[in-house]
């Protein structure tokens, strides 16, 4: 099982596909879930505190807007864990909405810079494209299993 960073990071469909094909999705929902389930004076529903953007300083400098750094405090640790990645380009809002374009630019770059196995594909607009979309993702994820078992064999 490989840890796969997904973009959009809150896409339930993408997260589900990774899970169904035998890998562990690294998604925003699990990080938000941890925030909500962790007992604290402010949570829920105020589950991000002013301390979080400071944690994001590890990934983006202080001149970067606080909203980007707050998001990076959640996404950065996921990126560090990532062993593979799937980036869906130009996704529909309903597929998974990443609110801040600057954060999106940064996380897409950081996934690419990590040099892990990466699948980048366009969001499908027709049913046929959707079938090809799922097929490509499955092929990529199956390949990850092979690579991993190959590693084990060595």
């Amino acid at each position: 099982m490989v840890k796969v960073f997904i973009y959009p990071s809150n896409s339930l469909i993408l997260s589900d596909l990774v899970d169904r094909f035998g890998h562990e999705p690294l998604a925003m929902m699990q990080e938000i879930g941890k925030k909500i389930r962790t007992a604290g004076l402010d949570s829920p529903p105020i589950n991000i505190t002013p301390e979080d953007p400071k944690l994001g300083l590890k990934y983006a400098a202080v001149e970067v807007p606080s909203g980007v750094r707050g998001r990076m405090s959640l996404l950065g640790p996921l990126l560090e864990e990532a062993e593979a990645g799937i980036i869906v380009r130009e996704p529909d809002i309903a597929f998974g909405c990443m609110g801040c374009a600057r954060t999106n630019e940064l996380i897409n770059f950081l996934v690419r810079a990590k040099k892990v196995p990466l699948l980048e594909l366009d969001y499908p607009n027709t049913e046929d494209e959707a079938k090809i979309f799922v097929h490509k993702i499955r092929e990529f994820l199956d390949g990850l299993s092979g690579a991993q078992s190959g590693k084990g064999d060595e």
Partner: peptide, 13 residues
């Protein structure tokens, strides 16, 4: 707004 939750200041507002 944009970013108030992720900046951790929604509670302050």
């Amino acid at each position: 707004s944009c970013g108030s939750e992720y900046s951790g200041i929604q509670k302050e507002i």
